[in-house]
Nucleic acid binder design. Structure first.
Length: 259
DNA sequence: TTGCATGTTCCGGA
DNA sequence: GTCCGGAACATGCA
């Protein structure tokens, strides 16, 4: 699931369950997900430390641990899960932080994404790659400069993490649908007015989704209709259409979103 | 059995 | 250099 709003939910979750007391031990149940350190040095860096300053940049969740920084990416199936009891670990729990009062699991079925440790800005950037400014709160002028100059299709541009960070497949489709812009339209052919509308709708979708920790699949949202290939546009009732843009399934309304 | 899935990266080609 | 499509990554589900 994880796009910007989901990771924002994980940030709050980490803040609630993973900070304020020291990590007693680290259980690396699947070393594949530790992307830039062997389990032993990862454990040494974290055990006895307290996580502080949980923060998010795009789809990345970061936290300070002593002189190091923990970086988490959730791929398509990652999440955080707290448990206070002594139930068996879930089979997809890959890395588990043990605290005195319970444990916090980095769970990830498909093993895209992972967990990194960084001790410097360059080391962090090697993990995350170049990231544009976070999509949440991006000012209109900056959005216009970043997105409006690109020749590529607007949906693909929105999803490029080095342009702006945090927008994934669902968020891009939702904002484009609301702004009535066809996902295949070249970004640099959008008028000022339409770019402004796209900016406004994206900010609104992000703000409302962040409160829920997900892009809500509610009535009135494209995200609430897109899974069913027989769905109609929640706004005008026209049959939705699907195609591939930027390697992912784009969903749009052929009546509301004309080329 | 096949196709598809909300992410990223790498490659070849236009 | 830019942009695109396709494949790969790993796993589960319809």
């Amino acid at each position: 699931m994880p796009e910007l709003p989901d990771v924002e939910g994980f940030r709050r979750y980490l803040s609630r369950y993973g900070t304020g007391r020291p990590i007693r031990s680290v259980d690396v149940r699947d070393g594949d997900l530790l992307r830039n350190h062997p389990p032993q040095s990862f454990r040494r860096a974290l055990e006895g430390r307290t996580l502080t300053r949980p923060r998010r940049h795009g789809k990345w969740l970061l936290a300070t641990a002593g002189d190091a920084e923990v970086l988490m990416h959730f791929g398509m199936t990652g999440l955080l899960k707290w448990s206070a009891g002594d139930e068996d670990p879930h089979p997809h729990d890959r890395i588990v932080l043990e605290f005195a009062n319970g444990r916090l699991a980095y769970r990830n079925m498909r093993k895209f994404g992972g967990v990194w440790l960084a001790r410097s800005d360059p080391e962090r950037e090697r993990a995350t790659g170049r990231l544009g400014p976070d999509a949440d709160g991006l000012e209109r002028d900056e959005f216009r400069d970043l997105v409006g100059r690109r020749r590529g299709r607007v949906k693909a541009v929105l999803m490029k993490q080095d342009v702006l960070a945090g927008v994934g497949n669902l968020l891009a489709d939702e904002a484009l649908w609301r702004a009535r812009i066809h996902p295949g339209c070249p970004a640099n052919r959008l008028s000022e007015r339409r770019l402004g509308a796209l900016h406004r709708e994206l900010q609104d979708v992000v703000r409302r989704s962040n409160r829920r920790g997900r892009i809500p699949p509610d009535p009135g949202w494209l995200t609430g209709a897109r899974d069913d290939r027989k769905s109609k546009c929640p706004r005008c009732g026209t049959g939705l259409r699907w195609t591939t843009i930027g390697g992912r399934t784009a969903c749009w309304c052929p009546r509301c979103q004309r080329r």
